[in-house]
Structures are given as structure tokens and as C-alpha cells.
Design a protein around this nucleic acid. Structure first.
Length: 573
RNA sequence: GCCUCCGUAGCUCAGCUGGAUAGAGCGACCGCCUUCUAAGCGGUAGGUCGCAGGUUCGAAUCCUGCCGGGGGUACCA
């Protein structure tokens, strides 16, 4: 049951009797609650939209539509206001009906049945397997996972994917770093860690594992003898760490794709020949970048992809000066492989520092799919971690590198997940580890969880009252706070759908915050006036009905929390 | 230089893809616990939506140009 959708259908059927092409304006028709309460329950702009095509003033069109809408039994009053808005007022019974539907329905309110053909791929996290995850990775992980949940909720068949960057120089450096730790454990002197290596302590256990298995077999061997083995073991160990950390915040993936395998399976050659056939490759010389020129910049011809045809600033190289493939070449191959899996839509969740990469990957996807696959990159801006207002300056060198695991251990997975979704992805986010645990409205997580828990305490309290002997009667619920709650919940389906289509899971936390606030207000009325309490022992029919409303709110909060992956709490302390 | 994101109350930010008189929390000030959980509620004060143009019935929202801040700027991943 979706009141807004029903009214839109009603409006469309009305205007389709007029001599116009409804499809032209169907997406522009707004059917939404007006900001101003005085403007009714639902407002629509349809008369203003039709004004141009019908060549009549909006007010005249509004009058015609008004007459038709007045035939709808749920509507108590239709007003025409301002430049041509049509404002609808509903009988309270429709909100009561909707509320009953939410509570009674076995499926989650607002959920749309899965359409298996509607395949969508969401790639997120994809942290390099060179070390544990930090707070920035956490944002991408939570955002991506919640977005995947959200898309699933509105009926997409979602594949959750992780791209493992297990090829190239950085994983060789990982292996070299582990080799140094290996020598250290065996008391063999080595040089200090150079800039390109990973000095973190977290590699020591990996080296210990190798020592216990192979002893000193590799101490005096040359790199080519141990590199592959060390690399394989280290990458696996790091992926295990990452997967474990992700499991702590309930983030999971369906598919892990290995960059090394993309190389090995010959996808790059395939892609190069496809792009070449489409006349999108050439040998060329790039202009030096403007601004500060790097010391080692040299002008030379190289194999380039015509990404500038797809909105990129310049064409992008596929081969390095040593004739090996660039990261982009492998990434192009990876996305080609992804495109072959029949997704209608591909979403990549990246850190903002990869922003410059969007156009070229979009370019190859458009090239492969003939622009048929909808490609979206969601960039998550930086997270600045602080404690009691003082920013943490993180540097791997100084050893004050704060891992995601550390944050989870100090604030818990629910707080971490919720806070990560209190801002939209393209705004920077301040994460204060201390503030986030405060017992106040400063902390939106508990504000929502408290609302959920409060309903539980009502349920406990009411157990002895044998309320099941009474039948829920929502028509008893018509005071201001009650109707407000019901109207707010009726908006959920359109809200959740809009959030999913905009790829903005943070809107769920905002909705939950509003809903929790409305419940807290309702509750507080009972502090001012005993008759406004939910449990009233000498009116059990009313108690039963009010309690049902509270349960409905609780149920909807539970549905919303599930999308953002936060556990509801039955009790707060 | 170029690309990109951000700029809304003292602070941190929402604003439902163009709607009517711009909202919330924190901070400030004033109230509410013999009460279903006060991690809560109510109220007051606080705005040139960075600036200037443009698009139209209508702009915080879309376009252009500035100003300020973050990120990115061949051969890393």
C-alpha cells in the first residue's frame, strides 16, 4: 500500500482522458507532501505542467482535475492554490489503514519484489591487499554495503563485488616487506624499510608463519626464488585480515575478482584488440601536465585509449615505459569481463582520490556496451578522524595509523555504520570517536535505537494486561501526534525508492531520525498528560490500539535499520 | 593551469533530483523527571542559502562566470 503511488495513478488516469501524450510529463508530475502543513496532505504540480501543452492557464486545468479527484472516497477536500497547485486533504482513515497494513504485512513495508532480470553490480571496498583497512575504507564499505541493501530492497538483483589489486609492483613490495620481516625473525641484518615498502607490524605474523613452515630455506636465495611464494602467502594473509575486519561490520561480498587473474587469463590482450577494432587506440605523445612539472617527466610515444571521446580531459596510456600494462589496462579488462556478465547497471564505490579515474573507466564501459550499460561511480569523500575535537593526524611512518578494527573495537559496529551514513557520500565526514559515544542527541545512533527500545519496554509492561482480548481499532487514533506518525510512515515507500534511485543510503538514516523523533514527541505527551499515555489501564481498547501504532513505528525502524546494517537494541542499559 | 567535490543559523550538517513562508542537532537562553526508560520532550534567539548574472509561472536546487576550501592531475594501485 502506497498512498502516494495510488494518487499518482489516479491523476494519470484523469489526465489521460485529456488529449495529450501523458508519457511526456509522467516523470515530472510531483505527488508529495507539501512542506507547509496548511497546504494539505498531498500536493501536485500536474496542472502547471499541463499548462503549456494544453495552452490553457494552470488554474483552469486545475479546476477540471479537481472535479475528478473529488470522486476519490479517500479525499476529503481538494484545494487549488498559488500558481496552480492542487492540494489534497485526506480522511484520517487512509493513514490508519496504511498503518494497519504496515503492521500486518508479512513482507517489509516498501520492499519491492526482486526482479531477477534486473541485474546490478556494486563494487565496493576493493582495498589493496597490502595492509589492514583504515577509516576511509570503512566509509566505502558501509556506503557500498548499504547501497547494495537498498537496491535489493527495491527489487534489484544485486551482485556485491570486490576487486583485488593483487598484481603489479605494490604486491611485490608487500612480498619484499614480508621477506625483510622473515630475515629479521631469523636474526639476519637487513636495511631499513624504504619508502615503497610496508613497515607495519602487521606483517610480522605473516613472516612468522613462513618461518614456521619453511624455516631458513630462503635466507640466502635471490629474489626470484622467493618472490612468488611470499607474494601468494602475503596476499592471502592480508585478504583474510580484510575479510575478517569486514565481517565485524557485517559487510560481505558475493564475488572477489583478482586482478592477477585478469592478467593471467589474457583479458588484457582481448580488450586491446577489441578497442583497437573500434578504432579507439593509437600510439601518441601526451602533453606534459600543466602546473608543477614532475622531475622524472619525459615526453615519449605510448599506447593510448581515446578516453577524451568520452569526456575525459586527455587520452590515457595503457602501457608503461617498461612495456608492461598500466593499472588502467587491467582495469579496462576487468570492466570488460564485468560487462560480459549481463548487468544492466554497474556501480563502483571509490575513494575521492580516484576521481580522476572515472571518465576513462566510463569510457571503456561505454565502448564495450555501446553505451547500453548504465555506469555510475560513487566517490566517498575523506573521513577525518578526531577525538574530543582534536584531529588525528595519520601517517603510516609515525606509527599512529588508526585501523578500522581499532575504531570498531572502541565504538562498536553499529555506531560506526550509522555515523558513516549521516552524511552524503560526496561531503567530507568528521568522525569523532569520543563524541560518538556521548549519551545525547549528539549521537543519532542511540536516538534511533532508544526509540526502538522504548517500544519494547511498553510491550513488556503490557504483557499482564491480556490485550489480545481486544481488537486493534485505529480509528481511535486521531490526535495530532498519532496522525503525524501515521502520515510519516505512509511516506516510507516513496522515500526509500527515491533514496535507492539517487544512490543515497544516508537518506535512510535521516528518515529514521525523523521517525524516532516523532515517536519521542508522542511519548513525551504522556509525561504532560496521563490521558495521552500509550498504556492506559482503564481503557484497554485504546491501549491496544496505541500500542499497535507504537509497534508499527518500531517495525518500520527495524526495517530501516536493516537496510543500513545496524542492529536494533531491545534495551538501552 | 585543467578536472572534480564542497560552500545553507555561531558550529556540524539535512533539504525527498525545480515548488508555496529554508529545516534539525550542538552551542546560548527559558521550561519539563513522586510519571509507559530524561540517551527524552517543549519553547526563545539565530539566515543576503559564498558573490554576480541567466533559464521560467517558480531556483538553495539547473546553466555561465567569479571568490574560498578539499581531492586529483602521464609511465602508482
Amino acid at each position: 500500500m502506497n498512498v502516494y503511488e495510488d494518487i499518482k495513478t489516479n491523476i494519470i488516469s484523469i489526465i489521460s482522458k485529456l488529449e495529450i501524450n501523458v508519457n511526456d510529463i509522467i516523470d515530472k508530475i510531483s505527488v508529495e507532501p507539501p512542506k507547509e502543513e496548511l497546504h494539505g496532505d498531498i500536493s501536485t504540480n500536474v496542472a502547471m505542467l499541463l499548462s503549456k501543452t494544453l495552452k490553457k492557464p494552470p488554474l483552469e486545468i486545475a479546476k477540471i482535475i479537481k472535479l475528478e479527484l473529488e470522486k476519490n472516497n479517500n479525499i476529503s477536500k481538494v484545494d487549488i492554490a498559488g500558481p496552480g497547485f492542487i492540494n489534497l486533504y485526506f480522511h484520517t482513515s487512509i493513514w490508519q489503514k496504511c498503518c494497519f497494513y504496515i503492521l500486518d504485512s508479512e513482507t517489509d513495508y516498501g520492499r519491492i519484489k526482486t526482479d531477477n532480470a534486473n541485474k546490478i553490480n556494486v563494487e565496493y571496498v576493493s582495498a589493496n591487499p597490502t595492509g589492514p583497512m583504515h577509516i576511509g575504507h570503512a566509509r566505502g564499505a558501509v556506503f557500498g554495503d548499504s547501497l547494495a541493501n537498498l537496491l535489493e530492497f527495491i527489487g534489484y538483483n544485486v551482485t556485491r563485488e570486490y576487486y583485488i589489486n593483487d598484481a603489479g609492483e605494490q604486491v611485490n613490495n608487500l612480498a619484499r616487506s614480508v621477506y625483510k620481516r622473515y630475515l629479521e625473525i631469523l636474526n639476519i641484518k637487513t636495511d631499513d624499510f624504504t619508502d615503497d615498502l610496508y613497515p607495519g607490524e602487521y606483517l610480522v605474523p605473516v613472516a612468522e608463519q613462513i618461518v614456521s613452515e619453511y624455516e631458513d630455506k630462503y635466507i640466502d636465495k635471490s629474489e626470484e626464488d622467493w618472490l612468488e611464494l611470499f607474494k601468494t602467502i602475503s596476499i592471502k594473509a592480508m585478504m583474510d585480515v580484510i575479510k575478517h575486519d569486514l565481517s565485524l561490520i557485517n559487510v560481505r561480498h558475493d564475488v572477489f575478482t583478482s586482478e592477477a587473474k585478469i592478467h593471467k587469463d589474457g583479458y588484457i590482450d582481448k580488450v586491446v584488440s577489441i578497442l583497437d577494432k573500434k578504432n579507439l587506440l593509437y600510439q601518441g605523445v601526451l602533453d606534459p601536465p600543466k602546473g608543477k612539472l614532475k622531475d622524472d617527466w619525459e615526453s615519449r610515444p605510448q599506447l593510448l585509449f581515446k578516453s577524451s571521446l568520452y569526456g575525459d580531459d586527455i587520452d590515457r596510456p595503457l602501457k608503461k615505459s617498461d612495456d608492461s600494462w598500466t593499472y588502467f589496462a587491467a582495469d579496462a579488462a576487468y570492466h570488460y569481463e564485468k560487462c560480459n556478465r549481463n548487468y544492466k547497471s554497474i556501480i563502483n564505490v571509490w575513494g575521492a582520490d580516484h576521481g580522476g579515474y572515472v571518465k576513462r573507466v566510463g569510457g571503456v564501459i561505454n565502448a564495450f556496451s555501446e553505451r547500453k550499460i548504465d555506469f555510475n561511480v560513487k566517490l566517498c569523500q575523506l573521513v577525518s578522524l578526531s577525538n574530543k575535537g582534536k584531529p588525528f593526524k595519520m601517517s603510516k611512518r609515525a606509527g599512529n595509523f588508526i585501523t578500522m578494527k581499532h575504531v570498531i573495537e572502541s565504538v562498536g559496529p553499529d555506531v560506526l555504520r550509522f555515523i558513516m551514513l549521516t552524511r552524503k557520500n560526496d561531503a567530507t565526514l568528521d568522525f569523532d570517536m569520543d563524541k560518538v559515544l556521548e549519551e545525547s542527541k549528539e549521537n543519532p545512533v542511540y536516538y534511533v535505537q532508544y526509540a526502538y527500545a522504548r517500544v519494547n519496554s511498553l510491550l513488556d509492561k503490557s504483557k499482564s494486561l491480556n490485550l489480545n482480548n481486544y481488537k486493534i481499532d485505529y480509528s481511535l487514533l486521531n490526535n495530532k501526534e498519532e496522525v503525524f506518525l501515521m502520515k510519516l510512515m505512509a511516506q516510507w515507500p516513496r522515500f526509500v525508492e527515491a533514496a535507492a534511485k539517487a544512490h543515497e543510503p544516508h537518506r535512510i538514516t535521516i528518515f529514521l531520525n525523523d521517525l524516532a523523533g516523532a515517536l519521542h514527541s508522542y511519548w513525551a505527551k504522556g509525561n504532560e498528560d496521563e490521558k495521552q499515555r500509550i498504556i492506559i489501564e482503564d481503557d484497554l481498547l485504546l491501549t491496544r490500539s496505541r500500542l499497535a501504532l507504537a509497534e508499527t513505528v518500531q517495525k518500520l525502524i527495524g526495517i530501516g535499520l536493516k537496510i543500513i546494517g545496524v542492529q536494533p537494541l531491545d534495551k538501552l542499559n
